[in-house]
Computed example of a mutant assay.
Amino acid sequence: MIRSRDDVWVRAEDASVIGSLRHSAAALAQTRGFSEKEIGRMAVAVSEAASNLVKHAVEGVMLVRPHPELNSAVEVIALDRGPGMQNVSRALRDGYSTAGTLGIGLGGIARMADGCDIHSLPGRGTVIALYFVARDAPAPPSLVSGLTRPIGEEIVCGDAFAIAGTGATTTVMLCDGLGHGDAAAHASNEAVRVFTENPGLAPATALERIHRSLSGTRGGAVAVATVERESRTVTFAGLGNVSGWIVHPDGRQGMVSVPGIAGSRAPSSLRQYEYTLPPHSMVVLHSDGLSERWDITSYPGLVTRPPSVLAATLLRDAGTRRDDACVVTVRTET
């Protein structure tokens, strides 16, 4: 069972943040059982990635957090709105650099990480997702990811998510607590609690329980989706303005969410809907802290990348600073 934490995105605008990010990564790695050698290797990679953001990125930010799929791993995500890279493979070569890109040291960063994926488009910016694994633990399966970001300069995010299962079946829940701040976070955290205590329920049943449980809170918009990889289906139940999408290289298909507020107003009977999953697709849920006006076809190759890269790209490009934001992405094939 995976549940969201308050992701702390650090702006990489000044060299002073490099040491702070390195220290945060090392401290987290120590709690996850990394050896001193593994901690040192990760610290160098994080320092280099942060330094590249400070020197070359536009609106660069970095996230260091426990990996969402493996207890013995640390995930690092760096993203920016800079000029991007025309040729990522070339940028990974040792000694390559181009002013204004993240090319400096990229090959070394990739080698020091246990996993590295990069998506970059000229004029759009770059997303780098790294992970580091302790003591020869198995590599993360990269089947699901979720990211949150609070409104403006707030520390607490009123949106939250939870994930159950990273095998043949994955169920995800996203709650957008009404408003923002502590009251919104209380509602979304209550939704996470109910979901994690009942991980095997059908989406409509889980949504109904969350609806009843939120009656003593501010309430929120909630969606639950179950991806069945063997049957290639997704079952979705939504209440309120959480967006649910099936995305594939040729476009996207919306999933039905009914009007209402979990904990306050809902139809007498909540329904769930089943959809067939096309090849090479992902399921995406996001709160209204992300605009719906994103076009997956304008990101060549993005659907084939790890869920964390898709989530970070959508958060960067569709997210609004005028609201809490949350996005969950689920790969539909192993």
Rank of each mutant, 00 (worst) to 15 (best):
G219Y: 00
R135Q: 14
P278E: 01
G82F: 06
G263T: 02
V227S: 04
A110N: 08
V222H: 04
D80R: 06
N52A: 15
L130G: 10
D114C: 01
V234C: 12
S188Y: 02
S243W: 07
M42N: 11
F132E: 09
P259G: 03
V247C: 13
G108Y: 01
L143E: 09
N52V: 14
H119A: 10
V8H: 10
T171L: 03
L214P: 01
L201I: 00
G216C: 02
D295R: 12
S16G: 09
T320S: 15
D80K: 05
E69G: 08
A73M: 08
D323W: 07
R124W: 02
L79P: 01
I77D: 08
R271L: 11
I151D: 07
A49Q: 14
A26S: 14
L302Q: 05
E274Q: 15
A168D: 15
L285D: 09
P140K: 04
G167K: 13
V256C: 10
A221T: 08
L270P: 00
S47L: 00
V61F: 01
W245A: 08
S142D: 15
H56G: 03
P249G: 05
R65H: 06
D7Q: 01
T98Y: 13
P68V: 07
G179T: 03
R32Y: 04
L214A: 02
D114F: 02
G254C: 04
P278N: 00
I77G: 08
V194Q: 07
R32V: 07
G254T: 11
T101D: 11
G263D: 02
T98P: 00
S24I: 07
V284A: 06
V327E: 06
T101H: 08
T98F: 13
G251L: 00
A183L: 13
S213P: 06
E48V: 11
A50M: 00
H180A: 11
A45H: 10
A57M: 03
R293N: 15
V133Y: 11
R124E: 12
H119V: 11
C116I: 04
F236A: 09
T233H: 06
G238F: 04
V328E: 04
A204E: 14
A91I: 09
A183F: 08
L28N: 09
V88G: 04
I109W: 02
G260C: 02
P307Q: 08
D324R: 06
R11Q: 10
N241C: 01
C157V: 12
N241E: 08
I151E: 14
T166N: 12
D295W: 09
Q253V: 14
F236R: 06
D6A: 11
A78G: 12
L207Q: 05
G123W: 02
Y273I: 08
G254I: 02
E228S: 14
T148P: 12
L207V: 04
R218H: 05
